[in-house]
Design a protein around this nucleic acid. Structure first.
Length: 715
DNA sequence: GCATGTTTCT
């Protein structure tokens, strides 16, 4: 494919073309602040100071301002308070003073990475490796480890000890060995020993021990270098101790040690994970302004951050920065950008970016393909998804367990039943990608949506036999399917079995049971379904019963409705309301249905239901159930009748949007709506120009209202 | 995960 993302987003040249050499200098005009600079004006807040600062630091700290101090001039000038006036100033003067500096700024990072010392060949490497193997295989207890240590074939000199330390696998053993070496007193402990031990402790997410070692270094006056700090920071990050990560970063500055780009990227990622976009951009731009050329890791951090925020401008900024600096993205950067494009809802750009990646000679890995498959599935791009799948097979691109499951989910999104079955069979045959609860959920989703309740039940039995855990999502798919098929006894059996196996019913599952209830007539089956629902959400069932009582007034309904909805997960609120309306309509409780629709609108469950422009009023019922859409149509016709009777101003066109049901399995809301229009003899016709729309002219509507006999509504 | 440090997935 010839088109590139760069072209698609109006960049002058493609990412795959190296940038003009003159652009590689950070001080040229190609360096522009990220567009969000003009959108947000959060002060670059100083991270908290560490609670305890070792004495030896204080003297140095007077000479070396902390990072936040260094950044202060920025925050008090260009990035100051978020006032309208300043917003205006910045908008009219986008080039802030430090972007094109007239004098050089104090640097915030060391342009050269910390050098590693060369190690010389150790003639005893073979025996020491064998011995390390022995240590790896022995029991983890301190006593057995120490007894094996007694058999060490050569004295623990600096080189021998380092070799073994590097060869141990579990953090417990690394830690034990490190402590043992210290007791031997055969040589002074150096930074590298701490670094290697900390790295191992990081695998075990042992931040507390890492911090103890770091403090031990400080008290023994062993220098902490960039490798030490980056290890501490990333360890804190992996343990979600972000404040600790910032604290150690600040401490590094105070002692006068300048971070190199690895440490700098690590701390950028910490701020990014905290969602502190402004801080990340401050740090990034500050370093860029002093001449730093970021590496792909930095761009991957930035892309991930913008992706998480769904910030498309940010993603564009990352692409543009890489282009102008002539940084070639690697596979990780592409993966992160693809993921970000997906989160920002840009499937077309993701596709172009992927093509650009392949054209640049990179081979997509499992994560690349997982990201793309997910995007095509969510976008319902069946053709692209199937083409990609074919390319994966013909090119022998790598597959892993995640990718299998993502492909299955894509099949569910696209309604690809046979393809899913083939994949599922492949998974069962494979060594490393056996179906798990995600795979089964996707399969239950596929067959459930397809209405194949026999196959769905088969899968349920198979899953139960194979010992795979059933998750609440799979349970919900199956129950929905059985409900639609009218297999209420099987539904009850599945519900009981699931709850007994530890499935915790959530609001979606309750919504599903409620929708099954809404499809049943009054009788034994309805009773059984409500029985299940009552075990998960007794209050909801009590409300359903309450709706059926004539003596209950609107005030009482309002109070109970509010109470239930406020306790319900946001994504399940509208479905609840839709189903409750359907239940009322099935039982000829039309006034109640109208009350519930009114309450749903009042509580914001149907935003954008009614839209007015001078020329057209329209009703958007795409997110409504059939009963709710019918109720909304009735309500709207009543309102319009009143307006006609009062001879108030009306637009030329009235329209109602039902959607076409792009999903293969979607229910026929349009058909149900059409038949209800017919029943009311309302003057709407299905539009030929706009699929999924019903339209009526003002003339049609007025004559319909006037022909109503008796009048539909009193004026 | 292999003689010390940074980034990506249902």
């Amino acid at each position: 494919m010839a088109s590139t993302v760069s072209a698609a987003i109006d960049l002058p040249c493609s990412l795959s073309n190296p940038a003009d050499p003159k652009n590689r200098n950070c001080f040229t005009s190609s360096f522009k602040p990220h567009p969000s600079r003009r959108r947000f004006f959060v002060v670059c807040s100083a991270p908290k100071s560490p609670t305890r600062a070792p004495e030896s630091f204080s003297e140095q700290s007077r000479n070396n301002p902390s990072l936040s101090e260094q950044l202060k001039p920025l925050s008090t000038t260009t990035l100051s308070a978020p006032t309208t006036a300043q917003t205006h100033v910045l908008k009219s003067k986008p080039k802030s003073t430090w972007v094109n500096p007239t004098r050089s700024k104090r640097s915030v990072l060391n342009p050269r990475r910390q050098k590693r010392s060369q190690h010389s060949y150790n003639p005893r490497v073979k025996e020491l490796r064998l011995f390390a193997q022995k240590l790896n295989e022995c029991e983890s207890s301190e006593s057995s480890f120490l007894s094996v240590l007694e058999e060490i074939p050569h004295p623990p000199t600096r080189e021998n000890a380092l070799l073994i330390l590097n060869s141990l696998k579990s953090w417990q053993k690394t830690h034990l060995f490190f402590n043992w070496v210290k007791t031997q007193n055969s040589f002074p402990m150096e930074t590298i020993f701490y670094n290697v031990t900390m790295k191992s402790l990081r695998f075990g997410r042992q931040f507390q021990l890492v911090e103890e070692l770091a403090n031990e270094m400080i008290s023994n006056e062993i220098d902490l270098d960039n490798i030490t700090y980056s290890t501490i920071i990333t360890c804190a990050k992996r343990c979600y101790l972000f404040d600790k990560a910032v604290e150690w970063f600040e401490r590094m500055y105070r002692t006068g040690l300048m971070p190199d780009e690895v440490t700098y990227s690590a701390i950028l990622d910490v701020y990014a994970k905290l969602g502190k976009v402004e801080e990340v951009l401050s740090l990034y731009e500050r370093a860029r302004a002093t001449g730093w050329k970021p590496d792909p890791v930095t761009f991957s951090v930035l892309a991930k951050m913008f992706g998480e925020a769904g910030d498309y401008d940010g993603i564009r900024y990352v692409l543009e920065e890489m282009r102008s600096l002539g940084v070639k993205p690697n596979v990780v950067v592409y993966n992160t950008l693809l993921e970000a494009m997906g989160k920002a809802g840009k499937p077309g750009l993701a596709r172009s970016l992927f093509e650009e990646m392949v054209e640049s000679g990179l081979t997509p890995n499992e994560k690349t393909l997982t990201a793309l498959v997910k995007i095509y599935g969510k976008a319902r791009w069946a053709r692209d998804a199937l083409e990609l799948w074919e390319r994966m097979r013909s090119n022998g691109w790598p597959m892993d367990f995640f990718l299998y499951n993502t492909l299955l989910s894509m099949c569910a999104d696209l309604g690809l039943v046979e393809e899913a079955e083939r994949l599922f069979e492949d998974m069962k045959q494979s060594e490393s990608s056996r179906p798990d609860s995600w795979s089964y959920t996707a399969m239950l989703n596929i067959h459930g949506s397809d209405g194949n309740s026999d196959r769905a039940m088969e899968l349920f039995e198979e899953l139960s036999r194979s010992g795979v855990e059933l998750n609440v999502m799979g349970c919900t798919c199956l129950i929905q399917c059985l409900g639609k098929a009218g297999r209420v006894d099987d539904l009850v059996r599945v519900f009981d079995a699931s709850v007994n196996r530890g499935v915790q019913p959530d609001d979606r599952l309750c919504g599903c049971l409620l929708s099954v209830a809404s499809m049943r007539e009054e009788g034994e089956d309805l009773h059984k379904v409500l029985g299940c629902l009552g075990r998960a959400n007794p209050k909801l069932v009590a409300f359903v019963k309450l709706l059926q009582e004539e003596s209950v007034n609107f005030e009482k309904v309002t109070v109970e409705f509010k109470s239930i909805i406020s306790e319900t997960a946001v994504e399940a609120r509208r479905p609840f309301c839709n189903c409750l309306i359907d239940i009322c309509r099935n039982q000829n409780l039309h006034d109640r249905a109208h009350e519930l629709l009114y309450l749903g609108i009042m509580y914001g469950l149907y935003p954008g239901l009614h839209n007015k422009t001078a020329d057209e009023w329209s009703l958007d019922v795409r997110s409504l159930s059939v009963g709710a859409a019918q109720t909304a149509l009735e309500e709207w016709m009543r309102t319009l009748s009143r307006i006609v009777k009062r001879e108030e101003a009306l637009p030329e066109v009235f329209s109602a949007q039902t959607g076409t049901g792009a999903h293969k399995f979607s229910q026929g809301l349009a058909n149900a709506f059409a038949s209800h229009v017919g029943k009311l003899a309302a003057p709407f016709r299905q539009s030929e120009e706009r699929a999924g729309w019903f339209v009526a002219t003002r003339e049609d509507l007025v004559s319909w209202v006037q022909s109503q006999n008796p009048p539909a509504v009193a004026a």
